[in-house]
Computed example of a mutant assay.
Amino acid sequence: MTATVDRSTAIADAAVAVISRDGVRGLTHRAVDRELGLPLGTTSNHARTRRDLVALVVDRLAQLSVVDVDRPSGRRRRPTSVKGAVDLLTELFDAVVARGPETRARFALTLELAADPELHELLTIASPARAHLYEQGRELLETLGVPDAQARAADLVGLLNGLAFDAVSGAERRGPAPDVRAVLTAWLAGVRGIRPARR
């Protein structure tokens, strides 16, 4: 059983690498076999159809995303200042961006699976990592005294997603990259009704 689980995880990780490098259309059973150096047909034994293979990837991405969301919060108490919140959110952002292949695969699949509600929801509204991030965001904003923290938590998740997409999509090659700390500082100061300090 453990060997099967380990092989499934290896297949999912290889599929993530294929998607990150070649796009979703490059994902085939043969491509994953080649990525792992396995005999052709091995991946098919663990994921019979292409949708089964994609589902394996979606599940794996959900696992990895939860690790990223949990990583910063486990290290410190909830911050009570904008600076402390920006430190925490920047650490989370850096963890997500450091997983470039996984993050690129997640964004690619989110777009590709728009017509498959079941799998699409696992990457978006039904994602355990996203739900956890919403809850952490709400608690963080409440601690900072942000009005209507629940609604603003959705805004925060959207902002972080946009910044992460920009970071992993190669946008910096077309112009200067956003200053993540400055963006988060200005946003948090704004939702608290406080003007950010001038530099």
Results as ranks from 00 to 15, higher is better:
Met1Glu: 06
Thr143Trp: 05
Ser169Trp: 08
Phe165Met: 11
Val96Asn: 02
Ala114Ile: 14
Glu139Gln: 14
Ser8Trp: 08
Ala62Cys: 13
Pro72His: 09
Val97Ile: 00
Gly158Ile: 02
Leu140Tyr: 01
Phe107Ile: 12
Gly74Thr: 00
Ile125Arg: 15
Pro147Tyr: 00
Ala171Tyr: 11
His132Leu: 14
Ala153Ser: 09
Asp87Gly: 04
Thr80Met: 03
Thr103Ala: 07
Gln63Lys: 15
Asp59His: 12
Arg21Gly: 01
Ser81Gln: 01
Ile125Pro: 10
Ala3Gln: 11
Leu92Met: 06
Ala197Tyr: 03
Asp70Ile: 09
Val69Phe: 11
Ala31Cys: 09
Val157Pro: 02
Arg25Ser: 09
Ala62His: 04
Leu122Pro: 05
Asp22Ile: 06
Ala12Arg: 04
Ala182Trp: 03
Leu27Gly: 09
Gly158Ser: 04
Ala115His: 15
Val69Trp: 11
Ala167Tyr: 05
Arg51Tyr: 09
Pro176Thr: 07
Arg75Leu: 14
Asp166Gln: 14
Asn45Val: 13
Ala186Thr: 06
Thr90Met: 05
Leu88Ala: 06
Leu113Ser: 07
Leu64Cys: 15
Val96Arg: 06
Gly100Tyr: 00
Ala31Ser: 13
Ala95Cys: 04
Ala10Thr: 10
Val54Arg: 06
Ala126Met: 09
Arg21Asp: 07
Leu92Glu: 07
Gly41Pro: 12
Ala129Ile: 14
Thr49Met: 11
Asp33Tyr: 08
Val16Asn: 00
Glu142Val: 08
Leu160Tyr: 08
Ala151Met: 01
Glu35Gly: 06
His120Tyr: 11
Pro72Glu: 09
Arg48Met: 12
Gly137Ser: 14
Pro176Gly: 02
Glu112Asn: 11
